[in-house]
């Protein structure tokens, strides 16, 4: 075989390997939705969003349907305003749905979960989901438990 063929062969194999690794990594890792281009934005306000961050995921029935875009504090009520994006424009959320901050496992990442309601009316893009459940902060939970134990004695 000519020397240049050997070079072509090994360089070709090198890049095929690269493409294979690329697709492998693309399939085993998560995806951020290409924000802005598709889907629509909703918001919700919470008492406490400890642990939630930009790009935290939004789930419905356990399936990832979007992610958090922005978290800010409202100046009047001091509650947290979370804007998040639903990736699928065809997915409509009933306006009596509940949204909450949940944790994966005990120490896992925080995510938003939507529990759909039964209304025939749907939340329009840009609107707010009104029924919310704040994050469960472990420290608060512990202190409550300790309090309970204290009163029982």
């Amino acid at each position: 075989m000519k020397k240049s063929h050997i070079v072509d062969f090994s360089v070709g194999a090198f890049f095929i390997l690269a493409i294979a690794a690329f697709f492998f990594l693309a399939t085993v890792t998560g995806r951020t939705a290409n924000s802005g281009s598709e889907g629509y934005e909703l918001s919700a306000r919470f008492e406490d969003v400890s642990g939630l961050a930009n790009n935290s995921v939004v789930r419905l029935s356990g399936v990832i349907i979007g992610q958090v875009e922005d978290i800010s504090v409202l100046h009047d009520t001091y509650s947290a305003m979370v804007r998040f994006r639903i990736d699928d424009p065809g997915l409509k959320i009933p306006d009596d749905s509940t949204i909450g901050v949940y944790t994966e496992g005990i120490l896992g990442a925080k995510y938003l979960a939507i529990i759909p309601g039964f209304s025939e009316e749907y939340v329009k893009p840009g609107q707010e989901i009104l029924r919310t459940k704040s994050a469960v902060v472990l420290e608060n939970l512990f202190s409550k438990i300790l309090l309970l134990i204290g009163t029982e004695k």
């Binding site: 990594l25 998560g30 994966e104």
Partner: peptide, 16 residues
Amino acid sequence: FWNPLLDGNVFFEQDV
């Protein structure tokens, strides 16, 4: 082992 990777903790577009 594999789930946390897919479940939106590691992002292909960002981390990789």
